[in-house]
Design a binder for these strands. Structure first.
Lengths: 202, 202
DNA sequence: CCTTTGTTTAACCAGATGGTTAAATCAAGT
DNA sequence: ACTTGATTTAACCATCTGGTTAAACAAAGG
């Protein structure tokens, strides 16, 4: 057999970069081939079509964005501490692959049917539901204010993810360079927790 | 001259629908022509190229998303009330064209240089800056807690816009139909205000 | 050495895509 | 009716794009 054995992985890495940067419609198979330093035909040899390749990249990205929530949720901690660590860890996780959210959200908006398939095969969802039940109970016990757990979830995720989605907008309007932006994000790991906790105080 | 005089506007309306639904890379000139019920050559007759047409649609969408903030900010009201009406009005405005934010954010991420041009020609930005100064002053006077005005702004905009950007995700995970989703948004007009105000209490 | 089997390449293809052009159509002024 | 100038259309073009194919190549086993 010829060449190194990681051609397969080389292709995925290239596809990941190109798809996440340009989206499904904007990505060109030739660009992916160039990025991987191989012939265009190899893409079809290893992964049958553009859609197949995209599906792999998308699934991976989707899990990276949604899946991380589950692991954190399931931790056994008092409500306030649980929420604070959730926010801190989630922002940290997203900051590692900051272009994933806008990619995932845009593709989902292009083909909302995609969601249906992911829902069943996404192990994080049950944990999210469980967390929301905990929130209701904590509300009844008076540990926190009684609020809609869905709205709580939405608020947390909004404040964690949105800054990355709107990154060029923020940096453009407020003239922030990359270092300043990263500091902003760093500060949010605690600040978003403050916002949520102050709201939840009974 | 032939036909009705609104061909020009007819084209823009069609382009708006197609571009916002599919994005620049995903939109086809033929689709826009079909949507407008005219020949493809007319698009080039009235608007020279795909890019030119796109620019018009994008500018319009960008203003719709960012511009609305200015008008609300400039209103003379006590801080708490100002923030509450801002949130209420902004969510209402976005709900009227709910697919604009994901379109704008995605295109900005595709071509961040676009931002540079918009910044100078966007009249809402000065008002945003002015608002942020007010926030600092209100903090010093003890009317509200002393917080980073940028972070405040980010929190507000995040919680207002993100639900629309993540709409299919939310509806998918939590099995919400369109009516339920709209109720969720309706509830947020007050709820997001509560979150922010409770955080700002000195 | 030669066969076999998995891997890689260059050349090619059909359909799509943005854009052009020359001719046709239409309404209004003369 | 005829000219004029804007509007509209059908046909066309060059290029791009996802995908295919046949042949070349490289190892491993016999």
């Amino acid at each position: 057999m010829a060449q190194e054995r990681n051609t397969e992985e080389l292709i995925i890495e290239a596809a990941r970069r190109i798809f996440i940067k340009r989206g499904l419609a904007g990505a060109r198979m030739q660009d992916i081939a160039d990025e991987a330093g191989i012939n265009k035909a190899m893409l079809h040899y290893y992964y049958r079509s553009k859609e197949k390749l995209f599906e792999i990249v998308f699934d991976e990205a989707f899990s990276k964005m949604v899946g991380r929530l589950g692991a954190i949720f399931s931790r056994q901690l008092p409500m306030e501490e649980k929420i604070r660590t959730l926010i801190d860890h989630y922002i940290t996780a997203i900051a590692e692959t900051p272009y994933v959210p806008i990619f995932v959200l845009n593709e989902i908006n292009q083909q909302p049917e995609m969601m249906v398939k992911r829902i069943s095969s996404q192990p994080a969802f049950p944990d999210i539901i469980a967390f929301m039940k905990e929130v209701v109970e904590a509300g009844k016990k008076g540990i926190i204010k009684e609020i809609s757990p869905l709205q709580l979830f939405l608020n947390i995720v909004s404040m964690c993810i949105f800054p990355f989605v709107a990154r060029p907008l923020i940096q453009g309007i407020f003239q922030q360079d990359n270092i300043q932006f990263n500091m902003l994000i760093e500060e949010r790991k605690k600040l978003v927790g403050d916002v949520i906790i102050s709201w939840l105080k009974p």
